[in-house]
Amino acid sequence: MPLIFALALAAQMSPMTTPVQPLPKGTGLPPPGTEEAQVMAPVTALLNGIAARDATAIGEALRPDATATIATEQAGASTITHKTRAELLARFTPGPERFQERLGDPAIEIDGDIAMVW
């Protein structure tokens, strides 16, 4: 009987959650010479290449075996396509259109030899 009472009492308690560390907030671009700056170097090079529509610069920022997954939405329909490195680079030809992504306040997480920037 005590076990049933304990289970009933436990069921009435508010649900417990596992504490989770908050995501680090971006604090601006990292100073040169830091591990974070090393992570940002290829990201910055890639975004600069995209802004300039320079397929050569983009290719230098990518791994030789890179692929791309592109998700688009139009009129409520989602499309996901996969591109090879060559197909991706072929999309970047000189033209008047410009894309400028701004990462003035990135958050960088480094875990061993894996890093994530957002």
Rank of each mutant, 00 (worst) to 15 (best):
A77N: 07
G95C: 12
P22I: 07
R85E: 06
A86E: 15
P2Q: 03
M116Y: 10
E60D: 09
T84H: 07
E60V: 03
T81M: 10
T44K: 06
R98M: 01
A11Q: 13
P15Q: 00
A90Y: 02
P94G: 09
P15Y: 01
F5D: 11
G49H: 04
D65E: 03
D105I: 07
I70T: 12
L103A: 06
A90P: 00
P19K: 15
Q74K: 15
I110L: 03
A6S: 15
T81K: 10
A8M: 14
P42V: 06
E87Y: 06
G28M: 02
R98Q: 01
F99Q: 11
G28D: 08
A90W: 03
T18W: 09
A6T: 14
D105V: 11
G59F: 02
D105C: 05
R85D: 14
P42K: 05
G95P: 15
E87R: 04
E36P: 11
P30N: 06
M1D: 01
S78P: 01
A77I: 10
T69V: 15
A41Q: 15
A61V: 06
A41C: 01
L88T: 08
G112R: 05
T72S: 10
G76H: 04
L46P: 12
R85Y: 05
E101W: 01
A71I: 09
A61W: 06
V117I: 13
I114N: 15
P24L: 01
P32T: 07
E101Y: 00
Q74V: 14
P96M: 04
P106A: 09
A37W: 14
L29V: 08
G33V: 11
I114R: 15
T81I: 05
D105W: 08
P2N: 02
G95V: 12
M40A: 05
P42H: 00
V20I: 15
H82E: 06
I114A: 10
P31L: 03
E60L: 05
R98T: 13
T69R: 09
A8D: 10
E35A: 13
E73D: 00
A51C: 08
A11Y: 12
I108T: 09
I50T: 12
I58M: 05
L103P: 00
T34L: 07
M13V: 10
A37V: 15
E35F: 02
I108L: 02
D113G: 09
V43R: 14
L23C: 05
T81V: 14
I50S: 01
Q100S: 04
G59K: 07
P30K: 06
F5Q: 15
T56H: 01
L3R: 11
A11C: 14
L9R: 05
R85S: 12
D65Q: 04
A11W: 14
T18A: 04
I110Q: 04
T84E: 05
P24G: 01
A61P: 03
P24H: 00
S14C: 04
T44A: 00
M116R: 10
L46N: 08
T81Q: 08
P30G: 09
A66E: 11
G112E: 08
T81A: 02
P19W: 13
